[in-house]
Amino acid sequence: MPDWRIAPLTANRVTELAACHIASWREAYGTLVPAHILDGFDLERSAITWERRRAEGTHHLPVALAGDRLIGFASATDSPAAESELEALYVRSAWHGTGVADALIETAAPGSPCTLWVFADYPRAHAFYRRHGFADTGIRRADPFTLLPELLWRREPG
């Protein structure tokens, strides 16, 4: 039995999710994303964005909890008429390799089809998503936040 659990995001955990999001970015992308971008995160503004998504009910927002501490989360669009998009999947680095991310992706975006954008120069994420049935579509863009190159990946039905 793991020493963590998956639960839905509740209003009292939104700021904790925002803090986890910021910390996870700094842990995962410290050598990829310029420091001035990582230093520019604003906890209050991030919490407002996550609360809006939670309140609107347009996203699946599972969180991973170890005891009472939020250690990861996922965000996927929830649209019965359209393909879902996994917009975020972050787990604190101390919990990498424990199965937390596997449980989060399966809770946020169960089944198929689904898309996601991933940094082009992030092989760890590429291996993870490949293991979950995603493949590079060949579509490219510049990430709107960092301007780094991103790849569109898709998980097909099946």
Rank of each mutant, 00 (worst) to 15 (best):
G67H: 01
P149A: 12
V14E: 05
T58C: 11
W4M: 10
A103K: 02
V100T: 09
R26T: 15
V63C: 03
H59Q: 13
E44R: 15
V14H: 00
A64P: 02
A94H: 11
W4Y: 09
L65H: 02
I37M: 03
A94G: 13
H126I: 10
I139D: 09
D102L: 01
D68Y: 12
V14T: 14
A94F: 08
T58Q: 12
E27D: 03
R5C: 13
E106Q: 13
A88F: 03
V91D: 06
A82S: 15
H36D: 13
A19S: 07
W153V: 11
A142R: 15
L86Q: 01
P149E: 05
T115L: 13
A81H: 07
E106H: 14
I71T: 05
A88S: 10
L65C: 08
S79P: 04
L147G: 05
C114H: 05
V63W: 00
F128L: 04
T107G: 06
P144A: 07
G111N: 01
G158F: 06
I139Q: 12
A109E: 02
T10M: 10
Y129H: 11
H96V: 04
L61R: 05
R155E: 07
G138I: 07
R52L: 15
Y90M: 09
V100K: 00
W25F: 14
G99V: 00
R69I: 12
H36Y: 10
E87W: 03
H59F: 10
P2F: 00
A18L: 03
G133T: 05
A101D: 06
L43Q: 08
D42C: 07
P34N: 04
D68N: 15
I48A: 15
T49E: 15
A23M: 03
A88W: 07
W153M: 11
E150H: 06
L65N: 04
F128T: 13
D78S: 12
R130L: 11
G158W: 10
R130F: 11
L65E: 09
R155P: 00
A127S: 08
R26N: 10
Y129V: 09
Y29V: 14
R5Y: 05
G111E: 06
A64E: 03
L43F: 02
G67Q: 01
F145H: 07
E150P: 06
D78K: 11
A7F: 01
P157A: 15
V118K: 01
I22M: 05
F73T: 14
W95V: 12
P62D: 02
A120Y: 10
G57N: 04
A35T: 14
S84E: 14
I37C: 00
L116Q: 12
V100W: 00
A7T: 15
F41I: 02
L152Q: 11
G99H: 00
Y90S: 05
L152E: 11
A55I: 10
T15W: 00
A74H: 01
E106F: 02
R54Y: 13
L65W: 02
D136H: 09
R124G: 09
D121G: 08
G72H: 00
A11S: 11
I48K: 15
L86T: 08
A55T: 14
R154P: 12
A135T: 13
T77A: 03
A125F: 13
P123D: 04
V63E: 01
Y90F: 15
R5N: 11
G67Y: 03
D143H: 02
E85Y: 03
A64Y: 00
A23K: 08
G72C: 06
A35G: 06
H96K: 04
A120F: 14
V14G: 07
H60D: 13
C20P: 05
A19G: 05
